[in-house]
Amino acid sequence: MSIPPRQAAISIRGLRKAFGGQPVYSGFDLDVRRGDILAIFGPNGCGKSTLINMAAGLLATDGGTILYDGRDVADVRVGYVFQNYREALFPWRRAADNIRYPLRLMGLPKPEIERRLERLATSFRVRFDLHRYPYELSGGQQQLVSIMRALAVEPEVLFLDEPFSALDYETTLSLRDLLQAVLKEIGVTTLLVSHDLEESIVLADRLLMLTRRPTTVADDVPVALPWPRGTAALSSPDFVAIKARCLDVFQAAVAA
């Protein structure tokens, strides 16, 4: 999919990365449009997480560029939600203090910090007590706190690394509904890594299917389903058609 440079929030060119001599990426290109939610889907070990970790600046690249409106990731406000919320939250701080933490690092004044905290709690319809410690919350509540912490800084780009994979289906459904509503409202450019095809389609404006290593793009699927996409959307003919197309591509990519 070709995107005019002025609309591209993220622009990856000639990305290279190898692990132990085994190339994962050798000359990978990708543009992501501002405000889009891009889901990245592919077989195990194809380097989905590697890609967003390099994009987020957590992992060094071996070559190529990843630019945000021409800027390096160090100059961009990013939010990152880890797969394992248990190991990502700070258990010695209360849930609210976990969310306040990045805001304090930014040196924001106290009233502004409290304003953002309250606004997030309203957006996500938080009904549990944020004054509790993370380990006193359920898995879904903990991941919600992680998401709030990532969004508190009002990021220009949000990274979600399999955010629901450690949660049960019921929790995933409700958290997914909340997340898509908030992301579409604030319009943040988002990279979502998922190994769940249904989740990838439901949350994404665009779905990138990756092949086995060395990783290339197997298919670039626009997801033009109307928002919001509730549980009913899962059985709409358009959804089913996209899913069928993706499954075919996936099977071909894995077999290849």
Binding site: L58, F82, P102, L105
Partner: peptide
């Protein structure tokens, strides 16, 4: 993960 989380928050 916690170290990475702190680093990415700046």
């Amino acid at each position: 993960t916690r170290v990475l989380a702190a680093r990415i928050m700046g």
